[in-house]
Amino acid sequence: MTSEAARTDGAARAADERPMIEIEDLHKRYGELEAVKAARLTVGRGEAQFIIGPSGCGKSTLLRCINLLEEPTGGRLRIGDVSIEFGTGRKTLSTREQAAFRARVGMVFQQFHLFPHMTALQNVMEGPRTVKRLPLAEAQEIAEGLLAKVGLAAKRDVYPRHLSGGQAQRVAIARALAMAPEVVLFDEVTSALDPELVDEVLAVIRQLTEEGMTMIVVTHEMSFAREVASAVSFMDHGAIVEHGSPRAIFEEADNPRLVAFLRRFRR
């Protein structure tokens, strides 16, 4: 990636109607293995883009490329007014620039990854305090507001090990939102949860879509995707092979691999 390409795009400021995220020809290669192949995705402001596909199809890798936890090996990525080009062989984005980029892109993980030595409130405050260097009172106000929003105001002083999976994941969502990100990425956030805890997390995500948060959601919750997605992409073997409205993907699919994949979710 080039630091030159990561500059704030002056012309873009006027063009707020551009999509929030544009991914073009994105590649991620590990030696011989091409985990993501020529991914192309556009997410408009306030849209909830869902990605489905079999395990190991590259959907998590794609997500991690989008917030640079993995560095793509080729292609272009733009979020808001920052665009980056990868694989040009030129100087990479500095550590500081990468961190600044990630601060604007929230991410919620399958395994929560809450900070175990911090209370729920401290977990949510950590970003605003350490990264944004907000005053304590302000960070605390933000964190308390977000814990209330995910229904966990009462758990503010509880350590993660005393939270249920569903509660932990809701704290993790609050932690991502505390940075006031332009985009939130959800990486199979209900896959590690007991079935009876899934709904409380989905309810929070649903609320975010209603509030117009731009997001990319990788999930195996097909009925949820059908219900709240703006658009759905189907990934297989590293490539986005189908893209369309929930209706087009779930009801009118004729791609045999997609049909076979979806059949497994019908009981």
Binding site: T95, A99, G106, M107, F109, E126, A176
Partner: peptide, 22 residues
């Protein structure tokens, strides 16, 4: 756990901050 690094980097922390705080 590597997840701790990822979660901390994902909120925009610098490597040094991740080490110190997390």
């Amino acid at each position: 756990d590597r997840g701790q690094w990822q979660a901390a980097r994902a909120i925009g922390m610098m490597p040094r901050q991740v080490m110190q705080r997390i």
